[in-house]
Design a protein around this nucleic acid. Structure first.
Lengths: 361, 361
DNA sequence: TCCCGGGATGAAAACCATATCATGAAAGCC
DNA sequence: GGCTTTCATGATATGGTTTTCATCCCGGGA
């Protein structure tokens, strides 16, 4: 409860004694200077005499003055806040991304406003409408080619960068070279098993990342001169359960033993391993498998999971970097940054699996 | 590249044809109304004639007008943005918290500005100084009793809530009842092993959560009528490596077999299990162990890890709820919300471990 | 016919910090 | 000693929106 100041002197309206938020004028009065001087003390201290400056600082302290960021922004047209719009913020993947973005933002003197599409209709603006005018730029990640928000940003002339998107609408973009990553992983698998034993257990069929990985898998197999049976490439979802289902399908047909599997992500791989384990089948003894994303879990489970590491933290940091760069140089041509994933081989591909029977030749 | 408008007519300064950000005045001109009417269309549409409203909306659309949030905030003194200041944003723990907070914020029409102490000195304001005037409130989590930011918020009269903190400075607070959680877990362990075989592998010695958990562990043991040897309660850090070190210490002395361990968090538990496994010791056959936090990993590793689930997502959501409530009712007495963790028993405590030798009696 | 009420709209104040320009004083120069 | 510089500071325009108050016009009641 704020102390009720003395209630005498009712004829002195300009500055009531105890306002909720003191303004620069209150500080100026308290220090006996003009508002211009207060502003200078706060922004370019070297322009003001030391004695005055310290008097002003005392007044600031005493009143608990915090410059009104709105008034500041109105003049400077900058809030030092960037919006980061993600499909979701849950899970290690986004956590990493956020960490990279946060670090870069802090280093560049910016702040991050996060927004997630969690539960909002896919084509909405993630509730960002009201703050569009508040942020200096937007880093946007979309899983499906949905760019309602991107279009709004463009029409409002707000700098934007797109993370990992199929069709960067002439905006800056960061992409992950899923093709290269999946190719690497597939080559690795093919060094252990025959192309005819290779499988791809993908994520959602409409997911761009997943599609790209599937395509790279197919192309690599073809490059090894092999026709790929359609049922060797499956899609489902990025989930543990789908991995289990996939594995059970393979087990039922007796095709898991000796197989080399590329999973759409680590989740799926864990599901596959889990379901296989229930049948006594363990990698790399009975089959080999590579995941995607290199989640922290990959090195904690036994056997440790070979996986393709996607540098999400870098992606977040680069996105912020690109965005800040664009804010400072609005007329640059569109920039594109591509990040290359790297294969991290672990126990699940440490050796070639036992073959149930010699390859028919 | 923006289209360069016709360059004739150099004598008409009031509103250059294509400004970067159209203002409400531009919209008003375009629609042939006053700015007051435009504002009304946007804020209380029922006060304006339908025909006029639609004309204004067309103009808004045409110009890609986005209200300047700074000017708005200057008047309304609200940004609908809340700051969420965390010690770190990495890892599942914070990810969960963030998810809960984000969901609640969205539901209440707010946005979240995240800030982490990552790399900043412990007593700094996390670089939040510049945006203090921009946010409507702050949710703050501190691991150590550091409240520089809290003090600043208080002196600037910015609503604040403290997450999981020892000394809520008369601010609203959310706490996790670590004591109850650890007591539950310890009781569970004591149903499987003798009190003399119980160990606590804690986190950082100065960490409040860890201290509380240690204390509950001790009290529970004492309640079971047992003196607890000092070396049964250790502290280190919240890390996998510390868990490994702790386990190796126990193994060296031949005390791991038959032990019942409460780990300060899941990380530590994983480290212990990992180090034990290297020696062929596996829970629950050779020892039993309970973690803390119930990370997703707990149910994915084999054996699955018993753990104490801390409802971080709820904590985040409640924090935002409390904060918004305080913003709307600034004169409420300080609120305190306590969240109770729940034990999730899994395989690592599925049965009593084999005892190396009968207890000396 | 006159007046009143109310719906629709406009004019202008207020919000607060920054930046430009102006002013005053002190210091340096020939 | 009168001049120009330089330094410290003050006065003021500016930014864009919300909101209050005033105005205008129209229709209905007396």
């Amino acid at each position: 409860m704020q102390p009720v100041e003395h209630q005498h002197d009712p004829h002195k309206p300009p500055h009531p004694p105890q306002r909720v938020h003191p303004s620069i004028q209150d500080v100026a009065d308290e220090a006996g200077v003009s508002i211009a001087t207060v502003s200078r003390v706060l922004n370019s201290p070297n322009l003001v005499a030391p004695a005055t400056a310290s008097r002003v600082r005392q007044a600031v302290e005493k009143l608990g003055y915090v410059p009104n960021a709105f008034a500041q922004g109105l003049i400077t047209r900058a809030s030092k806040v960037l919006a980061l719009a993600l499909p979701d913020i849950h899970g290690e993947f986004y956590s990493e991304l956020l960490r990279g973005a946060d670090g870069a933002a802090k280093a560049l003197g910016y702040h991050l406003l996060v927004a997630s599409a969690q539960g909002t209709p896919a084509d909405a603006d993630m509730g960002l409408g009201p703050v569009l005018g508040l942020v200096d730029g937007i880093a946007l990640m979309v899983t499906e080619p949905n760019d309602a928000l991107l279009k709004r940003a463009a029409s409002a002339r707000i700098p934007a960068v797109v993370l990992d998107a199929p069709d960067p609408h002439h905006a800056d973009s960061i992409t992950v070279d899923n093709h290269a990553g999946a190719t690497q992983a597939t080559e690795h698998l093919l060094s252990l098993v025959s192309p005819r034993d290779a499988y791809f257990a993908g994520g959602p069929p409409e997911n761009y990342d997943s599609k790209t990985r599937a395509q790279a898998f197919l192309e690599t197999l073809k490059a090894h001169g092999n026709h790929v049976p359609a049922d060797h490439v499956a899609s489902g979802s990025f989930s543990f359960e789908w991995g289990e289902r996939f594995a059970r399908g393979l087990i039922k047909d007796g095709r898991l033993r000796g197989a080399g599997i590329l999973a759409g992500n680590d989740e799926i791989a864990y599901g596959i391993i889990h379901a296989a384990e229930a049948e006594g089948l363990i990698p790399p003894r009975d089959f080999v498998i590579v995941g995607f994303d290199d989640t922290r879990l990959a090195s904690l489970i036994r056997p440790t999971l070979s996986s393709v590491r996607v540098p999400m933290s870098d992606a977040g940091a680069k996105a912020v970097g690109l965005l800040v760069n664009r804010i400072k140089n609005p007329n640059l041509p569109p920039q594109r940054v591509s990040l290359t994933p790297t294969l991290v081989p672990r126990q699940t591909t440490a050796s070639a699996p036992a073959r149930p029977r010699p390859p028919a030749r």
